[in-house]
Computed example of a mutant assay.
Amino acid sequence: MAAAEPEHVAWLSERQLARAWPTIRATCLDATANANGVRNNLHVSQSTWGESNWRTYHPSDVSRVAGAIADGTAELQPHWRNDTAEAKLLDQRLRRKNLPGAIGCALLVAVPLAIIVILLIIFWNGSGSSSPSYWH
């Protein structure tokens, strides 16, 4: 008896996984997949700019876990979800932690922009006034 031909399965990208599990944080998709036994493949690509890694996920496993997430039976840590008190607390901590970087980035853009505007105003005002001896 001949072995059954394996059927072709279109594995899901991480973006598709995020759409299938909207209540799971984007940074926790892989951890959720691993904790719930979702089959995945690691792909590696070499290019001029270095190595790229990405995962694809088996669609039937993804839909099984989506149902388990909806039922509340999936293996999840509270901070992996978007809708828990732990996730909200984590978001607040991350915002506080990233605030100095955001302020620094804003200053990095604002200060040179202000200098350019001031220099343009100075040069623009200086170029319009010419001495009367120039016209004689």
Rank of each mutant, 00 (worst) to 15 (best):
I121T: 10
V111E: 09
E5Q: 14
E51Y: 02
S129A: 06
D83R: 04
W54C: 02
E5D: 11
A106Q: 13
A110M: 14
H8R: 14
K97R: 13
R25Q: 15
M1Q: 05
W49D: 14
T32G: 01
R55Q: 06
L113P: 00
G104Y: 00
N53K: 12
K88M: 15
W21H: 09
K97Q: 11
E14G: 12
N53V: 07
P78T: 05
R95D: 07
R39G: 02
A35N: 01
L108N: 06
S63Q: 10
E75R: 09
L120A: 15
S52C: 06
S127M: 08
S130G: 03
I118L: 15
N125T: 13
N125M: 13
V44Q: 08
N36S: 02
S60Q: 04
L89T: 09
S133H: 09
F123G: 15
P112M: 08
H58Y: 07
L42E: 07
P132V: 11
S13Y: 04
L29P: 04
A33W: 06
N82R: 15
I69M: 14
S45A: 13
S129N: 05
S13D: 10
H79S: 08
N36D: 04
V62Q: 03
A68V: 02
W49L: 12
S45T: 14
A26P: 00
W54E: 00
W80P: 00
D91W: 05
S13R: 04
H8S: 13
N125L: 15
W21L: 14
F123E: 14
L42R: 05
V9H: 05
W80D: 02
M1C: 02
Y57T: 02
R19M: 14
H58M: 01
A114R: 09
N40I: 00
Q77S: 11
S127W: 11
A4V: 14
N98W: 06
P78R: 07
L12F: 03
K97N: 04
E51P: 01
A35M: 02
H136K: 07
L119P: 04
V111H: 09
R95Y: 03
S129L: 12
N53S: 01
I24E: 07
L120H: 13
A106T: 13
V44A: 04
V9D: 01
V109Y: 13
W54G: 00
N82V: 12
G126P: 00
N36M: 03
Q46H: 07
L89E: 14
L113W: 10
H136S: 10
S63E: 10
N98F: 03
A70F: 07
E51K: 10
A3E: 15
D83Y: 01
G67F: 06
S13H: 06
M1N: 04
R64T: 03
R55T: 01
A110W: 11
R19H: 15
W11P: 05
S63H: 05
P59S: 02
A85P: 10
A110I: 12
T73L: 05
R96Q: 15
D91Y: 04
A110Q: 09
F123V: 15
L90W: 05
L12W: 05
T27V: 14
V109D: 02
T73S: 14
L119V: 15
L89I: 06
G128N: 12
A114W: 10
E7D: 06
R95I: 07
A66T: 09
N82E: 14
Y134Q: 03
W49N: 13
E7V: 12
L107F: 08
I121E: 11
S60T: 02
A110S: 13
D83V: 02
S127D: 08
H43F: 05
L12V: 00
A2N: 06
